[in-house]
Nucleic acid binder design. Structure first.
Lengths: 131, 131
DNA sequence: TTTCTTCTTTAGAACTATTCTAATCTATTG
DNA sequence: CAATAGATTAGAATAGTTCTAAAGAAGAAA
């Protein structure tokens, strides 16, 4: 069982719900999901799980470094299965995200972090509009 | 009356509430405010205005290009009086933003926008943590 | 296994930020 | 000054997320 091991390695007890959600999240290629969408998907797939647990699980996975959160606007936040160095295009009309590989994009000239602080993460969101 | 002219130029009827909020927003140096905070500030200053109007006004100002919205996390969104080219440091503990001048920071290697789309805005948020 | 403890899940309530609604009010125009 | 188009208001509604208290499942110990 791959999922269980992955969860255990992250310090998370491999419960039925976590394993099922991990299965949905990490089985194919990288994904950007909202909690609501993942919940619906799980239900459709016959997994018995509550929305609260989906939220808990997504947050735990994020803390464990299995997911990354992408905040796009005040009421839309996605969880990204690609935790590597990369950035995003955002299509406001459809509310979708597309990855920009991290080796293409480069942020330079960043002033050094203020005293006592260090950079945790640099988020770049390129907001698009219809030309 | 500067505020009135500014509003008129933006195609907004210069009402008492808008003028008062514009006064608070644009009187001093650049600011990052939340709707809630601006509302409290207005009330404290003796301006009779509802929270709904503060939201309306901030959104209208944003659409008119007088403000810029900065989305920091799923439940915190700020309005920035600095609409020039610049980016932000974010301190999660205090929930505060600090400007990074736009001529320091540079984003390069951006893939061209997909067909039929163009870049509307590039948001960079540098998330800090205690070292 | 059985039991114990701890962690997890659940439904629904609660909460937060924001937008909507319908009535009232106000700035502008004629 | 009256008419009208647009703005404001309080409070309700909504959306997304977190909390709560009770019930359930996983791991450890015997």
């Amino acid at each position: 069982m791959k999922a269980a091991a992955r969860l255990r390695a992250a310090g998370l007890r491999p419960t039925r719900q976590r394993a099922a959600l991990a299965g949905l999240l990490f089985k194919g290629h990288d994904r950007h999901v909202s909690a609501e969408a993942l919940h619906e998907e799980a239900i459709r797939a016959g997994v018995k799980v509550s929305l609260a647990t989906v939220y808990n699980t997504l947050n735990q996975f994020t803390q464990a470094g299995l997911l990354q959160q992408v905040v796009v606007d005040a009421q839309r936040c996605y969880f990204d299965t690609n935790v590597g160095d990369h950035q995003h295009f955002f299509y406001p009309e459809e509310g979708t995200l597309i990855d920009i590989p991290g080796d293409d994009i480069k942020v330079s000239g960043l002033p050094s972090a203020p005293k006592g602080m260090e950079v945790e993460h640099v988020d770049v969101i390129v907001r698009l509009k219809r030309a």
